[in-house]
Design a protein around this nucleic acid. Structure first.
Lengths: 349, 349
DNA sequence: CGTGCGAAG
DNA sequence: CTTCACACG
């Protein structure tokens, strides 16, 4: 009969694999990315993440970095969790916290994303962009051994966050108590004995930066106050998709994206700087100031992940007084299931 | 690594097959359908195609039909094209004409629907519900040996028809010359030496029959006039998705759908009757007045095709004076790629 | 259920 | 590119 040509299944199956569930090959890191040759028939769409520079660069020995560094400086960072992570002064970690923008919790579920919990058993698991109203949350999101909390906004299928916790928090709150900023389900705060855990999906400034003002003048400002308030009571662990690449080394193409693409506008970067100035630190950069290609996000467009053209948008930002308890920060770049990958914080708390 | 469990691929692959490209099993016809047991956890959604009757019917020897007939009456009809089809008076067919509602020409293309042309090489091939504006028509829709004509409406991705012809028609027109009815790309007329070929996607009356008036009082009325006009000049072959099940034997569940579901409202049926009264005939019923389960459409919902709960919505309606040239009418129920299947007319012209 | 749109990222 | 909403069938 028509359509029963079994041979047709092979390429279809391959397409199926590469498109959907799983990727066998992790993205190549630490390889000369400046040499990646652009497709010759490049449709000048938005050039978002692709530099238009085609100058035949003189090859360097190990030109892995988007910002140059002497060859003897260690630019590496961990992408695999260290089961023996310790603080500087030798105390072993006691808590594992994960943050992951899952880009649609229902799609992520179909890709068996939830298995992550079974496999890595973090103490706290924050996810962003659930894109799912309370009513439509699949039952399979409930997981044994975890208390779970879901926040969804007013607009169906937009934004939304969730928090899983082995230990039942003392208290869980949603938003920062400001109506205008709390209607998109972007913020969950869990209070524990010795710290606050804040999971956030910071508003994207939008195409054409149409929402830049809302993001920087409203959200960032109010959120800074919110963090100060918490920090005055207990130290804070703040994590999530912060929708900003702080420095030039936090995205592949700083030159082409600066003040053009949401996530790398000077105002967004300044907002992050201002937050840190209030007594917080970027735990990843604390541990790996010279790390390069440390992306946690690759746009689905233009094959960015395969080419490792990415951004670091996901962070653990901690109260300064937690610095002594910091053990490790991992970026699990080979875990698939979203356009972001999970980031993992290990603390001795 | 996570997500590399090869065993997970098997069910995923099965789901992939059954959902998308191809179905290995043709729908079971001519089997006792009245005995099909309803799923016990039946969510009373709309009961559209499912009778709510659960009375334990007394089994009949061969209760294939939705309307009862003596056991010795032939209720069969061809689902495979007859390469030797002849007229009543023994003249072999010279022309093969196919009509198929493809439910999105781009999705249909991905399912290799276009291969149908290579395989069956009809002289004329009419498709409905292309759901594609002119600009977005994929290049692969152009096929060697065929002249092709595409009509698309004003609203993106809605309705639309096309016509392929081996022989170049004398003339091709779109619509019936009435602005209000011509803005959805529903009608293509090709003039040949000895006949007109009209391919149509008749407006669906819509959920809640919100568009019943437009369909019956405007479209049906105007279209009858249009047909009369053509028929006055040359005999007409009119085909397409007429969005009506004419008689009770033209759908699985006449009782539950009558005057409720679009396609089986008395006004729609009357419209069809009125058209025939102008000097046309339903070529399928002419050849197979007692045929049962002769569906050309199964809703994607409720597993209707697997259960063979369908409708005959696709027709070849011919000018009475073509009756002598009629050879065969096939309903290719095992050709997949849409929620409709192709219907095939063979004529000695 | 499945197709296509349009918004969002 | 991929998600989701919504419309339509």
């Amino acid at each position: 009969m028509l359509f029963v040509n079994r041979n047709l299944l092979i390429p279809a199956f391959n397409r199926f694999i590469s498109s959907a569930k799983l990727s066998i090959m992790p993205p190549k890191r630490k390889k000369a990315q400046a040499d990646v040759v652009e497709a010759t028939t490049k449709k000048t769409t938005e050039a978002e993440d692709e530099p238009t520079t085609k100058k035949t660069k003189i090859e360097k020995k190990s030109s892995t970095a988007s910002t140059d560094l002497p060859d003897d400086v260690d630019t590496s960072f961990p992408t695999q969790i260290n089961p023996d992570a310790k603080t500087k002064d030798g105390r072993k970690f006691t808590k594992t916290i994960v943050s992951w923008n899952v880009n649609g919790v229902r799609a992520w579920l179909k890709k068996d994303g939830i298995d992550y919990l079974q496999k890595y058993k973090p103490d706290i698991f924050c996810i962003q962009e659930t894109k799912c109203s309370q009513e439509k949350l699949p039952a399979s999101l409930k997981v044994p051994d975890y208390h779970s909390y879901f926040s969804s906004g007013d607009t169906e299928g937009y934004a939304g966050t969730a928090l899983y916790s082995k230990e039942k928090p003392i208290n869980v709150t949603y938003g920062m108590g400001i109506k205008k900023l709390d209607d998109e389900g972007r913020l969950i705060t869990a209070e524990y004995d010795t710290f606050y855990l804040v999971g956030a999906y910071v508003p994207n400034s939008g195409k054409g930066l149409v929402r830049l003002k809302y993001r920087t003048k409203e959200w960032d400002v109010a959120f800074r106050d919110y963090m100060k308030g918490l920090d005055a009571k207990k130290p804070v662990i703040y994590c999530g998709d912060l929708n900003v690449a702080h420095q030039e080394t936090d995205l592949k193409n700083p030159k082409t994206n600066r003040n053009k693409t949401p996530g790398f506008h000077d105002d967004e970067r300044q907002g992050f700087t201002d937050l840190l100035a209030e007594g917080f630190f970027d735990s990843f950069r604390e541990l790996y100031p010279n790390a390069r290609e440390c992306w946690s996000f690759w746009t689905y467009m233009m094959n960015a992940r395969a080419k490792n053209v990415g951004w670091r948008l996901d962070y653990f930002v901690l109260s300064d007084r937690l610095k002594k308890d910091l053990c490790e920060h991992t970026i699990q770049q080979d875990v698939m299931g979203s356009d972001h990958c999970p980031i993992v914080l290990q603390m001795a708390l």
